[in-house]
């Protein structure tokens, strides 16, 4: 097991919730915020700190779609697959992202720049189809629009 995550970063969270029953999901959410995903050593560490087994912690974590077990790219694309987005063509948007970046649900580009995750509903149904890139929402998407949004980001990154 590689041990690369700095576990001390999680200590304040573990201290805050020490002895507070029912806090496992909250602790895992904080951990994901710190590390960007849930590395295996963090799962083991949380299990030890909360007095449960790694299997139990992983069982809870894998149950919920929010948790990731692989690092994500610098730009996390959340593509909405809600009903309104489906009706307004989110499949075409997923296809465009695949054609442009070569990634689909749960994958990251080789350069580590983009990750794609399908989500159930972002609740912006009137702007469908919608995607969220980090904190920015992009609505009324078309294949052209998606391509230009991605190339803008790529250009910005290339300039850095």
């Amino acid at each position: 097991m590689s041990n690369t995550a700095d576990l001390s970063l999680l200590q304040p969270v573990l201290d805050e919730y020490a002895g507070v029953k029912g806090s496992l999901i909250t602790i895992l959410q904080s951990a994901q915020e710190i590390y960007g995903y849930l590395p295996q050593e963090v799962i083991y560490h949380v299990a030890e700190a909360t007095g449960s087994s790694p299997a139990h912690v992983l069982g809870v974590a894998t149950f919920y779609t929010q948790f990731r077990f692989k690092p994500v790219g610098k730009y996390l694309i959340l593509l909405c697959k809600g009903t309104a987005c489906h009706v307004n063509g989110s499949d075409m948007i997923a296809k465009t992202i695949y054609e442009t970046l070569g990634i689909t649900d749960g994958e990251t580009t080789e350069d580590g720049l983009f990750s794609l995750t399908f989500v159930a509903c972002l609740g912006c149904c009137s702007l469908s189809p919608v995607m969220l890139i980090n904190d920015d929402t992009y609505g009324s998407l078309t294949p052209e629009k998606v391509k230009s949004i991605i190339s803008e980001i790529q250009a910005k990154e290339a300039a850095v």
């Binding site: 309104a84 987005c85 489906h86 609740g123 149904c125």
Partner: peptide, 11 residues
């Protein structure tokens, strides 16, 4: 936990 895709009144 408004989970129904297509509903956003609670939000």
């Amino acid at each position: 936990d408004e989970g129904d895709p297509g509903a956003f009144m609670d939000r």
